[in-house]
Design a protein around this nucleic acid. Structure first.
Lengths: 210, 210
DNA sequence: GTATGTATCCATCAAATGATTGAATCGTAA
DNA sequence: TTACGATTCAATCATTTGATGGATACATAC
């Protein structure tokens, strides 16, 4: 059995997929309550009823978007893991930051949506996204901070969260932060990488040595 | 001339102040679009028209809330600055993290609102909050990373943002992160401090030495 | 050609929501 | 007491918004 989401991913030109793409961007920018189905429909260039025909309701579409971006990010981290496998911790972090940052700057709606889910309540429903925890555990293992994905110490989870959030923050907050440092986009991206490395690499390498 | 906000802060029992307090919490939890004037009015225990009588429109109230929390946070950072003045950088960071974290955990709506403003767009208006930049420059000076508030290097701004955001993230994302590490509130707060120190102190102390 | 299922749009509904109006209440000064 | 300003609420309005129904177009199968 294929879910609507899988069907949409199979054919990127299908109406289902086009709606999903626009929904990612709009939900990412304005959040759940800030987005109207009409905004998405207008962006796609279709009528609202067509949107409802393909995705049911606003809530359903939103949940599909969340699952979608989580799959994308997970896949990206698997790719990164392959590149850094076996390298010393300092280099793993360095390369991970470069690759992940580039990817997220190319798909900022991923960072936007993840952060908005962390920090904003959805008036209706308080469903806890069970993807993020195992996901964070994956990164912990990939960073070499835990043997296996199961039984990652809470302290390690917190450290991984700190790193991931730090990245998402600079991506998602670009509109706010970039004017503050008066940089063009390219310069800003470079500064983000530099700052992330400045902050995070010493913590893990120094404490590893002791 | 006194602004409505100043009037409200003068008498904390006034209806103006009571509305502002509830608005802080509700806007902080649900964001601008996720909040309805009825939600705030219900929380205060009054009619919506009373709310409009005192604060004009939803947008006006929201802007007052934003200014209000910025003033609070600024004042708190001034207090912290007094405590850590003259101490070596490592200790300054250590104590700043303790004090700031405790304060924000007691007033989580501050972190919520700041982050929601960073990461979420407000459908109507794209006004840039000019308080945050000078504010960040203040912290840079307080941390001893810049001589004066004017002319703080962009790289330093980025580092300060990284630290501040890291704190806000753990406060504002408590509902999401705490279940992940299966900790009660007290333990979570301790873990947050520990993680923040683990991440941030080495970066600044190590690079200072070289 | 007809039938069937898919996809799309136009018109419309019902509820939610920001906002206003006018009446009632209360305190206070003349 | 009376008059007046400040405050509060019930009722209501206009718009937005999520959602649906029905008509139309189009393809494919029979």
């Amino acid at each position: 059995m294929t879910t609507p989401l899988e069907k949409a991913r199979k054919d990127p030109d299908s109406m289902k997929a086009r709606i999903l793409d626009c929904a990612r961007r709009i939900f990412g920018q304005y959040g759940f309550h800030g987005t109207t189905t009409r905004m998405i429909a207008r962006e796609v260039g279709i009528d609202i009823s067509t949107l409802h025909y393909h995705w049911g309701g606003k809530k359903d579409l939103y949940e599909s978007v969340v699952v979608d971006i989580n799959k994308d990010l997970r896949q990206k981290l698997i790719d990164v893991e392959k590149v850094i496998h076996g390298l010393p911790l300092g280099e793993r972090l360095d390369i991970s930051i470069d690759l992940t940052t580039d990817y997220l700057f190319a798909h900022p709606e991923i960072s936007n949506l993840i952060l908005l889910r962390y920090f904003g309540k959805t008036r209706s429903d308080g469903n806890f996204d069970s993807l993020i925890p195992e996901f964070t555990a994956d990164i912990a293992r990939s960073m070499g901070l835990a043997r296996d994905r199961k039984n990652v110490p809470p302290e390690t989870m917190m450290k991984v969260l700190a790193v991931m959030n730090s990245i998402h923050n600079f991506i998602s907050g670009e509109n706010f932060f970039r004017p503050m440092v008066k940089a063009d986009r390219e310069t800003y991206i470079a500064m983000v990488k530099q700052t992330l490395k400045f902050i995070h690499i010493p913590a893990f390498t120094q404490n590893e040595a002791t």
